[in-house]
């Protein structure tokens, strides 16, 4: 086994990733607050105490529920839009294609921070262009929970559909024309060829796109944090990631924040393992 090829990666990942993760697990079992950080008091082992506090708190279940709905909504819209546009890309003229791919690249390249800030400006209650055009002067888009989530969701989709679109389009282009010609000779129509040949050949790529979208959208942080100013009015737009961060840094409950982080990691772990199993069943090997 070529150990030396893996050594540089391990030299970075073990101390900077694996060890902090272990520390995160450890912290989630302790009562670790401001007095412990400053060294005033020793950390107190509470076992599963943080987790039972969390599970007994109705606020946690609300946040968990809206995180799942928000992430699922973003994933579905992103994938549907990205896939539809990827197919559209194969049916349009050169000028339209160039314009669409450059526009998508622009949205993709925009940092989450600047994207959030620009959309906030567009939807500003008083100076925003959207309210001006719609004649909704003074309407606050962040006041209602659902509307605020929809707005943040739109920014997330705007940032992430280009990855899906460009990846799938590149994949469709990479299908050898000879295969499609053979199918056409055998009497397959364009739709059949697409469904029976292109889609199955793209399966590994689709898998990457789906897993990545789930992972990214479940962990949205910057957009929520910046646009709803740390979780919305009275925390109504909190998602798990922001919730963990606020518990740790705003209320100095580092142990509790770590416990939320552990819960999130486990949820994503289950999702990915289910997906890997489904992949393996279709004959894909890792």
């Amino acid at each position: 086994m070529p150990v030396w090829l893996l050594l540089p990666a391990l030299a970075v990942l073990v101390p900077m990733f694996a060890y902090p993760l272990y520390q995160l697990g450890l912290l989630s079992l302790f009562d670790y607050g401001q007095p412990q950080v400053s060294g005033g008091e020793p950390a107190r082992f509470v076992g599963a105490g943080n987790f039972s506090t969390l599970f007994a708190d109705p606020a946690f279940w609300t946040v968990l529920g809206q995180t799942v709905v928000f992430a699922a909504g973003c994933v579905v819209v992103t994938l549907a839009l990205g896939a539809a546009l990827a197919v559209l890309m194969t049916r349009i003229g050169k000028l339209a294609r160039t314009m669409l791919s450059y526009a998508a690249l622009t949205a993709w390249a925009a940092p989450a921070m600047t994207g959030s800030v620009v959309w906030m400006f567009l939807f500003d209650s008083n100076l925003g262009l959207v309210n001006e055009v719609l004649g909704l002067d003074g309407y606050n888009w962040l006041y209602d929970r659902t509307v605020a989530f929809a707005l943040v969701g739109a920014v997330v989709v705007w940032h992430s559909f280009p990855f899906v679109m460009i990846t799938l389009y590149a994949g469709i282009q990479a299908v050898p024309p000879s295969v499609l010609e053979a199918a056409a000779l055998d009497g397959a129509g364009a739709a059949t060829a697409f469904r029976r040949i292109t889609v199955p050949m793209l399966r590994p790529l689709i898998a990457i796109v789906v897993i990545q979208s789930i992972i990214w959208d479940f962990k949205v942080f910057t957009q929520i944090y910046v646009m709803t100013r740390g979780g919305g009015i009275a925390g109504q737009n909190m998602v798990l990631n922001v919730y963990a961060y606020q518990k740790a840094f705003a209320s100095s409950q580092y142990g509790l924040g770590s416990a939320i982080g552990i819960v999130m990691t486990l949820i994503l772990l289950v999702v990915t393992l289910l997906y890997l199993r489904a992949l393996r069943r279709t004959g894909e090997v890792l």
């Binding site: 992972i215 924040g257 770590s258």
Partner: peptide
């Protein structure tokens, strides 16, 4: 799995 870890939580340790 490493990609699933919420980076924000890791900032504490």
């Amino acid at each position: 799995i490493a990609q699933m870890v919420p980076v924000e939580a890791l900032s504490i340790p």
